[in-house]
Design a binder for these strands. Structure first.
Length: 117
RNA sequence: CCAGACGGUCGGAUGGCCGCCUUUCGGCGCAGGCAACUGCUUCGGGGGGAGGAAAGUCCGGGCUCCACGGAAGCACGGUGCCGGAUAACGUCCGGCGGGGGCGACCCUAGGGAAAGUGCAACAGAAAGCAUACCGCCCGCCAUCGCUUCGGCAACGGCAGGUAAGGGUGAAAAGGUGCGGUAAGAGCGCACCGCGCUCCCGGCAACGGGAGCGGCAUUGUAAACCCCACCGGGAGCAAGACCAGAUAGGGGCGGCGUUCCGGGGCUUCGGCUUCGGAAGGCACGUUUUCGGGCUGCCGCCCGGGUAGGUCGCGCGAGGCGUCCGGUAACGGGCGUCCCAGAUGAAUGGCCAUCGAACGCCCUAGCGGGCGGGAACAGAACCCGGCUUACAGACCGUCUGGCACU
RNA sequence: CGGGGUGUAGCUCAGUCUGGUAGAGUGCUUGCUUUGGGAGCAAGAUGCCGCAAGUUCGAAUCUUGCCACCCCGA
């Protein structure tokens, strides 16, 4: 699908970010970030929700909320040339949206990928 | 009005802002083409966008590939009262038998045990062509005792008759009652059950009636089995196409190979195995030199690769209506086109209304406050089954109470 | 998404086909042995047989429906 940003779809890409071991866990989500080898282009985002989050309805809902969250925050504040993976947690589907925004912003600052312009 | 039974429909609503998938129309641009047009990018408008279970994957089909002369049989698996519906089914409809409920109604794997085999632990005398532990009864013998001296005889022994009663068990070979008897027994009779024959009703399952028999035939087939019917296997990660890749390694078989040495076999023609050299290949700057690899074909193992397009949305299709049928369902006519994703669209945020539920007030009706919607997300499609599910509404019917 | 398998003692598994008694190893408890520990010896405890219905007189075992876990498939 096309959104305000490029999506990660290949399993190998997800595994590359996981191996990088650069992540920040917040109550509503876990953020992984990695600079691409070329360091060029728009930020790309992947979303994932494991069976631990709940049944299919809860997993879909958590992933959709993360997608809406990314559409709102990533194009404005994420550093270019990086790949990001947002992992849903158990509380993602129920947490207030404003709290999720704070979670993502805090995580981005801790990983030093915040762009303030 | 209360309690209940059955069938069906729905399963949060409205609006605002920002987005997503798909389809269609129009415009600009690019590419291909003589052209019709096609494809791509972008902008704008219109249409459509989760379920009754999308779930579990328990059955049945379509579709695809694989296998296979046809057909039948065997093996294995499944189904199992009768009739019908259907593409088919283990589903559905109508009926029958059995069980439950005052009733509406509900439940029911419900063929065959006189074709054969197996099993029935423990207990009990005995568990399947029955048997006799305690007991009951008769006869004979004999002792104690009693005696009116004729006998009567407890207890015991022997020989029989019994299946009433006791006891065991899930189950003990018809049940209840009356008669009968030494005691008993379908020994006789009545009713019930069972079996056989005949008649009547029904397409049938089966039901009703009459007569006869005199009780034979324990249970278990979700034990083997018998009978009847059905079934080739795997699954859209099927399968097809495009792009890319198919390197190095191991095993087996076949073909091919110059020389030397060792071993084995030999029908002395050779065959086979191991090692080395030559030759060949590519590499290191060229020669020298150095290390490395070892031909071809087929099969297998193992390893690597894991992108895209199609399949993939007109169908046993939905809705309305009429006709046939008790019904499941079938037929005619009209009308509609109605999800197609692939790290996976159908959403995010906000506002208003709001069911369940909780608390408070009230005799009750009702009111106030809080609260904020069950189970759950298409993944090739369709027909069923099963399981999960807050609640709302409609219809038909049953029982009870009150009133007319 | 599709296909297959397994649930029994704390752990690893028999028993299920062919229905009546639930077992082995290890671990655990107690005692003996030893100065003490380990090893060894002896005794003992331990299970709604994953859950629920059904068939049967009787179910870990047979049938059906659920639940959990594991494996495989371009």
């Amino acid at each position: 699908m096309r959104t305000a940003f490029e999506r990660l779809t290949r399993r190998a890409e997800f595994r590359r970010l996981t191996r990088a071991r650069r992540s920040s866990a917040r109550p509503g989500l876990v953020l992984q970030a990695l600079r691409r080898p070329d360091g060029e282009g728009e930020a790309r985002v992947g979303l994932t929700a494991s069976r631990r989050v709940g049944n299919a309805v809860r997993r879909n809902r958590a992933r959709r909320r993360l997608r809406a969250l990314a559409e709102k925050v990533i194009p404005l504040h994420a550093k270019h040339g990086h790949d990001y993976v947002m992992i849903a947690r158990v509380g993602t589907a129920d947490r207030p949206f404003s709290a999720l925004v704070e979670d993502l912003e805090t995580a981005m600052k801790r990983l030093n990928v915040w762009r303030d312009d």
